[in-house]
Design a protein around this nucleic acid. Structure first.
Lengths: 297, 297
DNA sequence: GGATAACATTAACATGTCTAATATTGCAAG
DNA sequence: CTTGCAATATTAGACATGTTAATGTTATCC
């Protein structure tokens, strides 16, 4: 049995002709005849009465014809539903990102993406870093955007961009007058930290140690936004990615000074399940992410 | 696609294992794997996620699984309905017979048949000869029982039995005293005829002519029962099949005397459509009809 | 009763499907 | 992190199934 056979029988029963139905289905009359004979042998019943012209459909033939119609209709239904699902799934890219990738950045990305692939839908969710990992692991997000990305058994990392870190200070802070900062300038300054278990904290600590700088550790937070907020409120200085301060700098509420000598970078990465099969739309989004424009932004 | 494939996929999805489902369906694990791969290629979608143990059914996989279940259920339903139809149709033999085959004869046949094939049903309809032919032609009867059977383009004849014809007379008729009748005894007798267009009439006329007998034609009827009735009422004598007079002879209401010299026979035949496909139960009935017991009765 | 149009039959052939053997992969235990 | 086990994937060749083209048979019409 095959869908072609079902359709063929249905057409034979409807047109009351083997040859016409065979032609309709692009097979020879012989094939049609043989298929029905085989079918009748299997069922142990005559379905069509060929001893009259045009042929007659027997009672059992009508039952089988109804069966064919029902199955073919159900198949159509399945195919339509599947297409809808494919459209839905394959037209959507689900991204989980940490807050600090920047909303304006993502808005720009979304705009460009919908321009290039108009039928696609981009769903971005902003989550705390560990939630980004679990969203990707649970296949609730196709792609994750995180800082200091970590690969694991199930997760693959694609390096995305390196964000330059700068000294962050309130405009009226003494250090704010410096256009460019040598690390030693920070000696003894009140410093706003990240929590000790965060990779960014380890990176900054390493940097300060290498530069032989001793800062005055004051408060610490588990996320970048709170650190920035604290700097804004003049609780001290910190070292933050330049890009996340862009708005505040433009508004004159914050000063970002490049670190001379040895610059410091925060790596951002794209993570996804190793086993993930990306559909074309998702691949298009990945391509977009990796273009210089967005890598550099 | 085949029902086996549908069942296989359903079992894979349910058991969440290729190998178990393959074993259940009596095929190799390799075959199961290949079938699903082919299917996924056709549909352009992943149905099962094998990168986890046990495997996971994707959203599309669930859709397809539902489709499989529905089709298989519909197939079961069809098969049950078909079996019922077969039981109904193939368990019934429809017979159309002329009146003069004899009710007691047929009752005996019915009894014997239901003893041999208990699940079978025999439907006998008594009709005038031309109605028997049209019932067979219209496939309203599987088998027809007629005298002087005539084959045609669509009808096949199976000779059934030859019924000996005897002189029929009322017990007090002068000819009733004869144990055996030579045709010449009939010379000048009042004779009750069949209508001229009936084969039995032509047969009797030929017989009388061959024997150089001149009878006195009185009334004529279009059927055997009326002729017998007329003889009973002493309107004259006639020549009738011995068997149809059995009851009246036993009751002493009629005398049946064999015709010596050249006996006369009425042929009975089984007729059916040339194109007819007899099912086993019908064949069993035909076999019964053709057994010596019923051929000779 | 012969012509013709439809269905059946046959044999050669192509295609698809299965099995057996083997490679690869996911997972869990050491 | 490696190793072993169990599950799935891959491959090639045997086998079955379905198709075609040619030809035979049958129903119907005139």
């Amino acid at each position: 049995m095959s869908y072609e056979s079902l359709k063929l029988f249905r057409d034979i029963a409807q047109s009351r002709s083997f040859s016409r139905a065979a032609a309709m289905n692009g097979v020879s009359q012989s094939a049609a005849s043989q298929q029905v004979q085989e079918l009748e042998k299997d069922l142990g019943t005559i379905l069509l009465d060929r001893s009259t012209r045009p042929l007659a459909v027997t009672q059992a033939g009508h039952l089988y014809n109804d069966f064919c119609r029902d199955v073919l209709r159900r198949k159509e239904e399945f195919e339509v539903t599947l297409d809808r699902l494919k459209q839905e799934v394959e037209g959507t890219v689900r991204v989980a990102a940490i807050y600090s990738v920047g909303l304006s950045e993502m808005a720009q990305l979304e705009e460009e993406f919908s321009r290039r692939v108009p039928k696609a839908q981009l769903v971005v969710e902003y989550l705390r870093p560990e939630k980004v990992y679990s969203a990707v692991l649970a296949d609730q997000a196709d792609i994750g955007l995180v800082s200091y990305p970590e690969a694991s058994r199930q997760i693959t990392v694609i390096p995305w961009r390196m964000e330059e870190m700068m000294l962050a200070a309130a405009p009226d802070h003494p250090l704010a007058r410096l256009k460019r900062v040598v690390p030693q300038s920070l000696n003894g300054a009140d410093f706003i930290d990240f929590d000790e278990d965060l990779p960014i904290r380890r990176d900054i600590d390493r940097f300060l140690r290498e530069q032989n700088v001793q800062v005055n550790h004051t408060v610490h937070f588990d996320n970048l936004e709170m650190v920035k907020e604290a700097v804004l409120h003049r609780k001290g200085v910190s070292i933050l990615p330049a890009r996340v301060m862009r708005d505040e700098v433009a508004q004159g509420r914050l000063v970002a000074a490049p670190l001379v000598a040895s610059p410091l970078f925060r790596p951002l990465g794209i993570i996804h399940l190793k086993k993930k099969h990306f559909h074309p739309v998702a691949l298009a989004f990945l391509d977009l992410l990796r273009e210089p424009e967005f890598k550099a932004a």
